[in-house]
Write a protein that binds this DNA or RNA. Structure first.
Lengths: 255, 255
DNA sequence: CGGCTCGTTGATCAACCTCAATCAGTGTGG
DNA sequence: CCACACTGATTGAGGTTGATCAACGAGCCG
């Protein structure tokens, strides 16, 4: 970063906007700039009327709701290709918060543009609907995990799903290990468990030779057994064309 | 129904299609017929590549996933105005089943039409996205209920949410009672509880003078206390413009 | 070094489940 | 009309999963 600084603005919320830098090309007329969000910063807040949709370009984020007494439910994790912030209307308050887990770059698409983009590029509308369908399926899957599976099963499933999602989204991974920038508290809040119980259950899974999670690295030890515990393989949302969204939606000018 | 029968076909799955009868007018060129589904019949199946989206016109439906051993998670309840079957792509298998709870009439919109409708009517695309946002928020809300609330709180919230949804969707309701065509097993499967525990918790709620559910009728006894138990009122998804979708999307020719 | 976060382990506790019996309501066939 | 089956609600007794409270170690950072 030697000379590009005059294009870069850092906002009060810590986001960095590359004003004239490369961004997401949606239609001939619409280019939304890339925005960088450092780790642990909110992308939008619960209660906020968020003016943008965000397409994840790089990094990890997650969404959560909190109750007044501090209980927290993580709703979803977002990897590159995910469209964040789909809501019933531009005036609707977001019912949850989105926060970066690692440093994140997103393309911020103003909601005001949406209708106009749909007019010019109906395929974009198709992809937004497709992304929404993905999000719905993820949420439903999580719901079944939390509501109807034991901690052991749910944890196995979550690890399996994250593993396969990372694999399909991030082509620069191989072997049976991936980086997982999650604390046990994150995992617990995603599954409706305490971090203490996540720790114990993770221990059981390791002792059973199924998987290992240490120092932010998830290693699958026995793929067959893992899918067995996680339940029917067909129940796993493999998110078959998530990469299509990422590939075609995110045709940004990279440098 | 004296002379309209020649327009009506009953399919093997029990659905009734009014071939030339009134239906949903989406754009000048697109009219999808109304389809009637008797109570307790599937609208689409888990594992099926559903060729249609369904706009709920009348009645109740619900979506669920089942595990191999019979455990079931209800993902959402659908009232008039809801758009069912949003999915990542036309070739994707539905990961859940949708079933009618009462007799239901839906407008079936072929997925193949979608792109073409979007071209002609970008506002339709906006409304689909809006409906998807609604569905996502509902799912997230359920997730927090199931994962992070006690049975007492979750049940209070579910009843409150259903009550307000019925109120906004069905204008022909008044007073503090509504019809709720759910068994305690349904409620349990929605909240990740057993029907036995739903029964006990419902008993507590009634003894506390909060609400009463008997013979398919939900009566709110103390609205203030109910919202109190359900948590901050702002956390309730009141689904503020669901009626907008129903009103504008569902401009069918009624007779 | 002190203070922090994160993970780990132990002991106890409670929310919710399981199994089981009973009962009311409803429909069905004889 | 009644016996029977079936579904849904209710209540009791006892069991299990996972929560709570607490202590401690490792790593990290100012």
């Amino acid at each position: 970063m030697t000379m590009g600084n005059r294009f870069i603005t850092t906002r009060s919320n810590g986001h960095t906007v590359r004003k004239n830098g490369p961004g997401l090309v949606i239609a001939e007329r619409f280019v939304s700039p890339y925005e960088f969000v450092p780790a642990g910063k909110e992308i939008y807040f619960e209660g906020e009327r968020s003016a943008h949709l965000y397409l994840m370009i790089e990094g990890w984020a997650y969404q959560y709701q909190t109750l007044r007494d501090g209980r927290r439910q993580i709703l979803d994790f977002s990897l590159p290709g995910t469209l964040l912030g789909i809501s019933p209307g531009p005036a609707t308050k977001m019912p949850h918060t989105a926060e970066s887990l690692t440093g994140v770059t997103v393309a911020a698409i103003p909601r005001e543009w949406l209708r106009e983009i749909f007019v010019r590029e109906p395929d974009f509308a198709m992809r937004v609907v497709s992304a929404a369908g993905d999000t719905i399926n993820q949420a439903y899957d999580n719901l079944t995990d939390v509501g109807r599976r034991t901690a052991y099963e749910a944890l196995a499933r979550l690890m399996l799903r994250l593993f396969t999602r990372i694999r399909t989204q991030c082509p620069d991974t191989w072997g049976n290990s991936v980086e997982l920038p999650l604390t046990q508290a994150h995992i617990g809040d995603a599954l409706g468990l305490t971090s203490v119980h996540v720790c114990r259950t993770l221990g059981t899974l390791r002792r059973d030779g199924v998987l290992k999670l240490r120092d932010g690295t998830l290693t699958i030890l026995d793929f067959g057994r893992l899918t067995e515990i996680a339940g029917d393989g067909s129940e796993v949302v493999v998110s078959p064309r998530r990469d299509k969204v990422a590939g075609k939606l995110a045709e940004g000018t990279h440098e």
